[in-house]
Design a binder for these strands. Structure first.
Lengths: 241, 241
DNA sequence: GACCTTGCATTGTGATCGCAATTATCGACT
DNA sequence: AGTCGATAATTGCGATCACAATGCAAGGTC
């Protein structure tokens, strides 16, 4: 315990608990932590090479954003497993807020944004080709939020971020199962075209369609019974049947 | 400092940081803490008779829910002052999510719910008569969320709760200024009537109208210049002109 | 008298310790 | 050999301390 503290690099500045937050958030969005598995403050702290304190702070934020769940009896932490009802509500909320953000971003779009999106989309398609699910998840997130940030709607943006955080782990499981081959990147092309000419309604429709297709996949996976069964210990086994 | 620690009663069970959270949350919703004023962990801890530690946890949650803001430079805490853009986005989000919750609650409404709402509404009107703004705020919150909880939509309910938390402090300022005399409780009657016959669309319209009128007042107050001016120290003076 | 500097109080952050509760592990007994 | 019970380990929660940074205020200088 008298080690010189590895202290992982982790980006650059800001407070430690913010870096821890970003680390866990990325792990959740990209699905590096499977839904249902239990985590602990000390284990996360050890893994990140920090003291339990900043982890505790980061976990509080994530619990507040419902990206982590806390067993009311145990008081133990876990990644929430997604139920059909939860999925339905998250879908509804996303279908309302994300097209709205895209529509608001359209009038404020410029050439630089479109270029950035094009770069992200190329990376995304490359990830699809080589079947790198992690990279695809990161790129897809980057694509959507590059648009949403342009809307200049802080409150709505934060809400959208929270929704992705909640749906991220499950997306990863589904996409890892059905494969990424059939994912339609053409909706992204539609969105970029609409943004190029500052067509708000076009952007709204493109994002709505993109979401709709993605969520269809997830819903189909859930209804097909590819659910998550929670073992009595709290540990979760992902049944891909 | 060697005092025997007053340790405020504070509800009943659960962890200390949850009780602290509820206390601050209530204070924000009812507007006991004015927008823009700076708070500190230690001052809140002293006021609640607890150590700074659980306050720190509670504040993390509230910051994550955007009910408290943290100055990126200072890293100091404050109640966020509401801007016109923020208000517009919060209104949009509320106008979408709260009527939706009301509509979902309608088919699940029963006599007990209507009775409960009636009791709350009577208390609300009494508060209006005597001009007790705090009591009105509490009752109004209770009325809406008694309905929303019935929707059985956990995710949407949490989102609605977050929105109230963000808009609460400002509501209080506005209502405290324009007086509560002209507030239309008849929308509540409409909502109760719709719930009584399980009329989803009626409930949706009633809540939408209720929100619309309330937000109109707030928007008018903002545009009339009854804004909040932040002093250089971070302390805020409420200009009721 | 106005402005700058110096000192002190307060702030958030992180670390470490102790505690009670729960869980896991292993030994003992029937 | 199987089941039960006791011990040890882990977990989250709260308290306290240390520290760097910031804010505030008093006092000094021009």
């Amino acid at each position: 315990m008298a080690e010189p503290k590895p202290r992982r690099p982790l980006a650059d500045s800001t407070a430690v608990h913010d870096q821890v937050y970003d680390s866990i958030r990325q792990a959740l969005i990209t699905g590096k932590i499977a839904p249902g598995v239990g985590v602990s403050l000390r284990s996360l702290a050890a893994e990140l090479g920090v003291s339990p304190m900043p982890v505790r702070d980061a976990v509080r934020r994530l619990v507040a954003e419902r990206a982590l769940a806390i067993n009311p009896a145990n008081k133990r932490l876990s990644v929430p497993s997604l139920s059909a009802e939860r999925l339905e509500q998250l879908e509804l909320a996303r279908q309302w807020i994300e097209p709205e953000l895209a529509a608001r971003a359209a009038p404020r779009a410029d050439e630089a944004l479109v270029r950035k999106l094009k770069a992200i989309d190329q990376d995304l398609e490359e990830a699809l080709r080589v079947g790198d699910v992690d990279r695809y998840m990161v790129a897809n997130h980057a694509f959507h939020f590059a648009i949403y940030e342009r809307a200049g709607a802080e409150v709505l943006l934060a809400m959208a971020g929270g929704l992705w955080l909640q749906i991220g782990p499950f997306m990863r499981v589904v996409f890892g199962r059905v494969g990424t081959g059939s994912l339609p990147a053409d909706r992204h092309a539609q969105a970029m075209d609409a943004l190029k000419v500052r067509d708000a309604e076009g952007a709204r429709r493109a994002i709505a369609a993109d979401l709709s297709e993605g969520m269809d996949k997830m819903r189909a996976a859930v209804e097909a019974g590819a659910g998550l069964t929670v073992a009595p210990t709290g540990q979760t086994v992902i049944t891909v049947s």
